[in-house]
């Protein structure tokens, strides 16, 4: 599903994002990416949805070689990968419903489909009755769940989440992670970048550990250890 072949990302000669990455993620896998600050986790995630281009190596998503993807093709890629970030990236002047609908609107979906799909998505993240609220009227955990619902709008094969629980307390963190588990059970591949030891240990899934841009550990049913 996701294949990195000897990928390196060098920002400037003295600032290396990742180097010599070999990574092969199977469809339906749930992969935790851990590592110290500056070890290249965000860089790895951004390479997957073409926010950054590799300086070396090749990246495949499914059977699509995105190593040299053109600007015109990026929207198509973004509709196949749902992205969730640490800072809540919701449009502040749109309601919850509109925020989720937005992802479908930009892709040219019919209004009828949007009216049907958005409530379903909000139901998945447990926010069915808060569609008319604006982001500032929601708690941090609720906001992040809206972001997750939006990431799911295109029914992506892959979800890439970069510290999605970074700003959340334990209870909200559990709720968001539970949603990811649920999505994964339905067959979506999940890449979860996190600092949170408890999440990693309780998930008991594959763990990829980065250090100074390199993969130093990659184990099935791993535990958090640095």
């Amino acid at each position: 599903m996701i294949k990195f072949k000897n990928v390196s990302k060098v920002y400037t000669p003295d600032s290396v994002g990742v180097k010599n990455i070999y990574l092969d993620v199977q469809p339906g896998e749930f992969v935790c990416v851990v590592g110290a600050s500056g070890s290249g986790k965000t860089t790895l995630a951004k390479l997957m949805f073409a926010e950054e281009r590799p300086t070396e190596g090749a990246i495949h998503i499914g059977d699509w070689d995105i190593t040299h993807i053109s600007q015109r093709e990026i929207p198509e890629l973004r509709r196949q990968i749902g992205v969730v970030f640490q800072d809540f990236k919701l449009l502040p002047k749109k309601t919850v419903f509109e925020n989720v609908a937005f992802a479908l609107q930009v892709a040219g979906a019919a209004s009828k489909r949007i009216r049907k799909v958005v409530p379903e998505l909000l139901d998945v993240v447990g926010l069915k009755d808060k569609g008319e609220r604006y982001p500032f009227q929601l708690s941090g955990g609720e906001q992040q769940r809206v972001v997750v619902a939006r990431a799911l709008a295109h029914q992506p094969k892959i979800i890439v989440a970069d510290e999605p629980t970074g700003n959340l307390d334990a209870l909200n963190t559990k709720e968001v992670i539970d949603i990811f588990k649920q999505i994964n059970e339905f067959g979506t591949t999940v890449i979860l970048v996190t600092h949170n030891r408890e999440i990693v240990n309780s998930l008991k899934r594959r763990v990829v550990t980065l250090d100074k841009g390199e993969i130093i550990n990659d184990v099935e049913k791993g535990r958090y250890h640095i």
Binding site: I74, V83, K89, F102, V106, A107, H154
Partner: peptide, 16 residues
């Protein structure tokens, strides 16, 4: 700016 980067991330085409 924020809005624009979000729009790009959710897969909007350039003309959108």
């Amino acid at each position: 700016r924020e809005e624009i980067s979000i729009t790009k991330l959710v897969g909007a085409s350039n003309w959108f």
